[in-house]
């Protein structure tokens, strides 16, 4: 397994946000975490990236323990994170945003090459290279956030609700991009409230309910599960 989460728990003050979370992410394909508001999906990704300390449990990445490392050290190990709400740098240009994604890379020539690849993948970013990131639309900002994360050449990509607040046509475009990223060989952990979308994309799914793992299984099986259909697919 590329990523192994074992019995992870995170508290905010005295309030427990997640407990007893165990997950496996193989070295390829898409794993999704679905669940309603406040289920603990974001907290789990934040814990993996080192933004929230664990109060119990362990996280291993590529065989090495990473919980307790600073966020920038975890990026250095190869985990990139497209955070909830995109969190692009509003007062940096599009290109500067992309370059911050490559902050830890020293292979200058291939960074330049990757920049061009990113512009080919997201032509709308290319047109706006020198524009302040804050002047872009929500969909463009999401693409920038994804492009920025890919500039790190990650071994694992965490994505927190990339479809949030976007028009259906843009959501479809983003879905296509996620598939492409996975096909290019980068494993993805996709957090989504849009369960239909997530189960359609992912190979394997975890269902979170109020901070705990409620169910897990291959996406196709969960898609046919009565509880999942009733609670998350509105069928």
């Amino acid at each position: 397994m590329l990523l192994e989460v074992r019995g992870a728990a995170v508290n905010y003050g005295k309030v427990s946000a997640i407990r007893e979370i165990s997950m496996n992410v193989p070295d390829g394909g898409i794993v999704t975490i679905i669940g309603g508001n406040g289920a603990g999906k974001t907290t789990t990704l934040r814990a993996i990236s080192g933004l929230e300390p664990l109060t119990a449990g362990k996280i291993h990445f590529a065989g090495e323990r990473i919980d307790g490392l600073a966020p920038d050290r975890i990026v250095a190990r190869g985990i990139a994170h497209v955070p909830e709400g995109r969190r692009i740098f509003p007062e940096l240009t599009v290109e500067e945003n992309l370059r911050t994604g490559a902050f830890l890379r020293r292979d200058q020539a291939s960074v330049e090459a990757d920049l061009e690849t990113t512009y080919l993948r997201f032509p709308r970013l290319s047109e706006r290279r020198r524009q302040m990131a804050k002047t872009m639309s929500g969909g463009e900002q999401q693409m920038l956030a994804i492009g920025r994360a890919l500039m790190a050449r990650p071994k694992l990509l965490l994505m927190d609700e990339p479809s949030m607040g976007l028009a259906p046509i843009i959501v479809e475009e983003i879905a296509g991009i996620i598939e492409e990223i996975s096909q290019d060989g980068v494993p993805v952990v996709l957090v989504e409230q849009n369960a239909e979308l997530a189960l359609g994309l992912a190979d394997y799914a975890y269902v979170f309910e109020t901070g705990s793992l409620a169910m897990e299984g291959p996406s196709r099986e969960l898609h046919d599960n009565d509880h999942v259909r009733a609670a998350y697919l509105g069928i």
Binding site: S49, A70, P71, R87, L92, T100, G101, F103, A152
Partner: peptide, 25 residues
């Protein structure tokens, strides 16, 4: 410069900067 972008990025959003591998310290 690379560290210049890093400084401006961490001024605008320290957490997002940390997620790019920038050390806030």
């Amino acid at each position: 410069t690379r560290f210049g972008w890093a400084l401006r990025a961490s001024a605008q959003d320290p957490e997002a900067a940390a997620l790019q591998g920038i050390s806030i310290t």
